[in-house]
Structure formats: C-alpha cells, structure tokens
Write a protein that binds this DNA or RNA. Structure first.
Length: 554
RNA sequence: GCGCCAGUAGCUCAGCUGGAUAGAGCAUGUGACUUCUAAUCACAGGGUCGAGGGUUCGAGUCCUUCCUGGCGCGCCA
C-alpha cells in the first residue's frame, strides 16, 4: 500500500520537474508515514517541507503543485489535503483498504514476509554461554532476543544462520575439570579443601556423582593431568548437552555450534594474529604483542599474545570474526550481555583491521534481568552458584510467557521479570491477552461451523458489508504488519512485534465486544468471518516470529 | 577520573531514525455476562518528556553543560 503510494508521489514529482513547476530537479527521498491522528489521513508526507529550502519556495506552494500532478490515483484515494505547514495527507478509499484482506488471505502464513533483505547472508550469534554451568535467566533473555532477531530477519528476506560459540578453550575448562575432580574425590571420602575460584554450584556435585556411578573409583589413581583432561572433557560435554536441551525446551535451535578450540586446532588464531601483523597494526611491548585498536577509536590498545606466550580471549575473537566473514556473511550480529559493552570498540577495531566496514558487525546489547517474586528481588550470584536457572523459570511460568516477557522491552533497557506476574492467568498478563485474541477467532470459527457455515475464501465475500469503523481500522492495522516486520528487522528490535501484537489484539477484543460476528444476515457474517480470520492469520504469524504459540482454545 | 546505556503518567514502559494536540499496560474509580469464551470491553482522572542552554519552519528525538541511576574500564575468560 505504502509502496504504491510512494510510486504515485514519485511520478507526480517527476511530472512537476518535467513541466517546470518545480526547478531544483533533485528527487528527494519520499518519506511517508502514518499520522498519529486519524484526522490527518491514512498517510502523510512531508516532502513539500523537505524541499522548501532547495526550491526556495513556500512549502504549501510546492505541495499544491505536487497535489495537482497527482491526479485521481485510479480510485486509490478519496481526497488529498494540504494541511498545517505543508503536509500532504492522503485519505484512501475503504475499497482500496479492504482489498488488502485478499493479500493477507492469499499469502496466509507467508503474509508479513518481505524481500527487503534480498537474500543477503546474515549470521546471528547468541547465548554463547561458557559450558561451565547451566543457563540462567539472563541467558534466557539473550536466547529469546537472538532467536527473535533471527526470525524477524528471516521474515524480512535475509538468509539467516543461528550460531552458538562455545568457549571451550582456555583456563575455564581446566577450572571446570578441577572442580569436578575435587568433588569426585570428596565423594570418595577424601577431605578436600574446595577453592573459591572453582565452580561452587551444586550441579558440579551432581556431575561428579554421575561420574562416580559410571566410572567407579578408577579415576582416583590416574595421573593428575590425565584425570583433569577427563573431567574437563566429560564435564564440558555434559554441560553443553544440558544447555542444548534447555534451549530446545525454550524453542531455540541453532544451525551451528562453533567451537573456540577448533580455531586453535586449525591454526586460525595464529593466522588471525599474523594477518594483523602483516598489515602493520601490531607492535611488541614488554614481551607481549599488542593490536593498536586505538587507531580505530578504542581507548586502549589490546593484548593479543601475553608475555608468557599464551594468546588472549581477544585473539581468538579476532580469528573467530575473521572466519565468520570468510564464511561469506554480509552482516554478522553478536548478541551480548550489556556488561560486555566495553568490548564493542575493540571488536569494531577488529573489523577495521580486517578491512571490513565496522557496520558489517552489529552488536546487540541485552541488559540484565531483574528477577522478582511478588515484587521482591530474587538474589542471584553466579559465583556462589546460587542462581535461578532458565530451566527452572521455563518449568515454572511456561515457555510462552517466558519468551514474551523477555521480548516486551527493547533489549537495551533493564527488565523486571516477575515470576508471579508471568504465571498469573489474568488481565495483568499480556501474553494471555494476545493468545486469547487468537483463541477467540478460532472459537468463533467453531461456532460458525456448528451452524453449518463455512469459513469464506478469497472472492467469496462482499466488502461492502464491512461498514463499521472498527472493521476498517482492523484492516488498516493488518496492512501495516509487513512494515512492522521490516522496521523490526532493520533496527534489530523484536519488541516492535510485541507492541504491534498488543495493539492488534486490543483492536480485535474491542471489535468483538461491540457486536457479533455471526448474525442473521449471512453475507455480513461471511464478510466478518473473512476479516477476523485475516486477524487470526496475522496474530499467528507474529506470534510465531517470537517463538510463542498461538493456541486454538484457552 | 574516563567511557557506554538509561532518566517520559503513581508503577512498568512505547514513541516508527526531526513532524501536527506525547501514547499503552498495570494500579485507582465507575459501568457491561439470559448474547460467538468476562483471560474481554466501555468511560474517567493522571505529564515542566531529569534540569539549563543551543541548532530550525518544527525537538521527547540532534549538539552542549550539569544532576541522578546502572554497567564497564586486566598481559582474566
């Protein structure tokens, strides 16, 4: 709809230039928006004002010329008005709007897909929690956000891959192994002094017990390094599997699990460092190798190789991101906890060092989650091992509520997650509100079928039967859905889908309460059924993007 | 000290990349179930958009200086 209008305006502008009505000859970008107030029409453009400077002419004069050139639009609009300082407002015909319902019907589950991404390859890397413990609630928000961003971008026509980066190299795996080994010995009755820098959580003890049951006491007499290797690998693998299970329970599935260790095994880390060295972006100081990230806006240079010869986490990140682009992605998106925001400048510097546009890497920072129960904060501390796991929250409040809550706010604002509220089956809970709208349509469908009616298809209804203001409003809202998807994709903001859903559900509930869909007049009933099933389609499609189910009854 | 993010109704938050009279949910108050699901709806009150200055036809949105809160500033991962 919007696109068609933009084309008309473009044509009119060209006409004005050709006929010397306007002189600057510069085709401006045509901004078309839905005005906040319905009195200002269905669409509004500010181009006359935007052109005022170049044309050296009053905006309203320019608007008049454009409007004159627009003609009648083949019945697309009732009227066009020039308003305020020079807005051009379009009032489209109901017939034109209701035609959009056929689009929704025809495309069905595909309605809302666009070609904006033009098949460009995008990778979304998210969660990427260390395999040293189970996922907690904060990871859940990252998972919901990353998955929804990937879904939204897929809908917008990008080719998207979901990737999980496993930090399975370095000290932490040894620490995990040591933690397990010590707990194992403890279970065998040894007196163990469990260090504070080991992982404190009870899941470590559970894992150690598992090992004991499977392997017996034989590991006790293994040489230390051999035992450590066993426990590291065993623990890392088990915890990784657990993470994968938890994510599956959350409805999140990755296309690829990428091992950090594999970068070392394939000498990618060395290659990455060498590449930066060849380009003269590094130097040696005090026995360490530094990357001059300050050249690209970072506030300090960063170490790649420590004076003891060990590479840093940053070094493998250089290799990892280099390798991502080698795999042919046009855009790479990293979803990080907001506490890592200090790493953004150095990662952007990596892009510059790789001679890529820093814009090709987008970093979504997800703020921390404040877990509440009845308004009281739930204390959490990863260190002490006292934290609420994602699995516990899914089990308690359900996957739908959990996902919806995580996506209700823009990701860079902090989120209060109240367990009691998320569980409540009441009007305080926005998840059910939206799902209920979907279930209601299904319920009406069942009712209609019981009365011997069939749900109408395209061409089987007379739009002239849709005479109510609410019916027109609903239709307009449905027609905006693809733009909402585009906007959410372009800005990496899945919460826009949530807000749209709430608005659509509200409009539908309101419509439902004002009158009945099925009335004595079969033609009107048919038209209304057609409309509300378009609503159902869009509710369903949008919920799917968020990973939330669309139930048929509640 | 430096940097990043935030500050909008009593509370939690939107605000479509600078547009017209700043919105929603919750909470509060009143009303609607012999009617396709009341997990719903209708109506009402509620604002110095943290503060000051600037940019322009026009600022919640951009620049700047303060104030407040969160986070980050390792040859850790």
């Amino acid at each position: 709809m919007k696109q068609r209008l933009v084309q008309y305006i473009g044509k009119a502008l060209q006409g004005c230039f050709d006929q010397q009505q306007l002189h600057s000859g510069v085709m401006p970008e045509i901004g078309l928006e839905v005005p906040a107030h319905t009195e200002h029409g269905d669409f509004s453009t500010n181009i006359a004002m935007a052109m005022a400077r170049a044309e050296k002419k009053a905006p309203r004069k320019i608007a008049e010329a454009i409007v004159a050139a627009l003609g009648d639009g083949d019945g697309m609009w009732d009227r066009i008005e020039i308003a305020g300082p020079g807005f051009i407002n379009f009032y489209l015909t109901p017939r034109c709007w209701f035609g959009m319902l056929d689009e929704v019907y025809r495309q069905g589950e595909l309605y809302g897909r666009t070609h904006t991404g033009a098949g460009r390859k995008v990778q979304v890397e998210f969660v990427s929690a260390n395999p040293t413990g189970p996922l907690h609630i904060g990871h859940g928000r990252g998972a919901a956000t990353g998955d929804a961003v990937a879904a939204v971008m897929t809908a917008a026509g990008y080719e998207v891959q979901r990737e999980y980066y496993i930090n399975d190299a370095g000290n932490q795996m040894l620490t995990l192994g040591r933690s397990l080994l010590l707990r194992y010995r403890e279970l065998l009755g040894e007196a163990v002094d469990f260090p504070t820098d080991c992982y404190q959580g009870v899941y470590i003890i559970d894992l150690a017990r598992e090992v004991l049951e499977q392997e017996g006491e034989r590991l006790r007499n293994l040489p230390e390094d051999e035992a450590l290797r066993f426990f590291s690998e065993y623990g890392g693998g088990k915890i990784r599997d657990g993470i994968e299970d938890d994510l599956a329970a959350f409805g999140v599935h990755f296309d690829n699990w990428y091992s950090e260790q594999s970068l070392y095994d394939r000498q990618e880390v060395e290659r990455g460092i060498a590449l930066l060295q060849e380009r003269g972006l590094t130097y040696e100081k005090e026995g360490a190798i530094w990357f001059r990230t300050t050249d690209y806006g970072d506030d300090k240079d960063r170490v790649l190789v420590r004076s003891n010869g060990a590479t840093t986490y940053f070094a493998s990140d250089v290799a990892y991101h280099k390798e991502k682009f080698d795999r042919g992605f046009d855009t790479v998106i990293d979803v990080w906890g907001a506490d890592h925001h200090g790493y953004v400048p150095r990662m952007k510097a990596v892009l510059a060092g790789l001679e890529r546009n820093p814009q090709d890497l987008q970093i979504i920072l997800v703020q921390l989650v404040n877990l509440l129960r009845d308004g009281q904060q739930v204390a959490m501390s990863t260190r002490s091992g006292e934290f609420v796991t994602l699995r516990e929250v899914i089990d308690e409040v359900g996957r739908d509520a959990c996902r919806f809550f995580f996506l209700m706010r823009r990701s860079d604002s902090q989120l209060d997650f109240d367990l009691e509220l998320a569980k409540k089956q009441s009007n305080e809970n926005p998840v059910f509100y939206v799902q209920y709208a979907h279930a209601r349509v299904c319920s009406i469908n069942r009712n209609a079928e019981e009365q011997g009616m069939t749900i109408p298809g395209q061409g089987q209804v007379d739009f002239d039967c849709l005479t109510l203001e609410d019916e027109l409003m609903l239709t307009k809202l449905l027609s905006r859905y693809p733009e909402v998807v585009d906007g959410a994709a372009a800005n990496f903001e899945p919460h826009r889908i949530v807000f749209y859903l709430q608005e659509l559900a509200a409009r539908f509930h309101s419509y439902y309460n004002k009158g009945r869909v099925i009335i004595d007049d079969p033609e009107v009933s048919q038209a209304r059924l057609y409309l509300i099933n378009c609503v159902r389609t869009v509710l369903h499609n949008a919920l799917v993007l968020l990973g939330v189910s669309a139930p048929d009854r509640m």
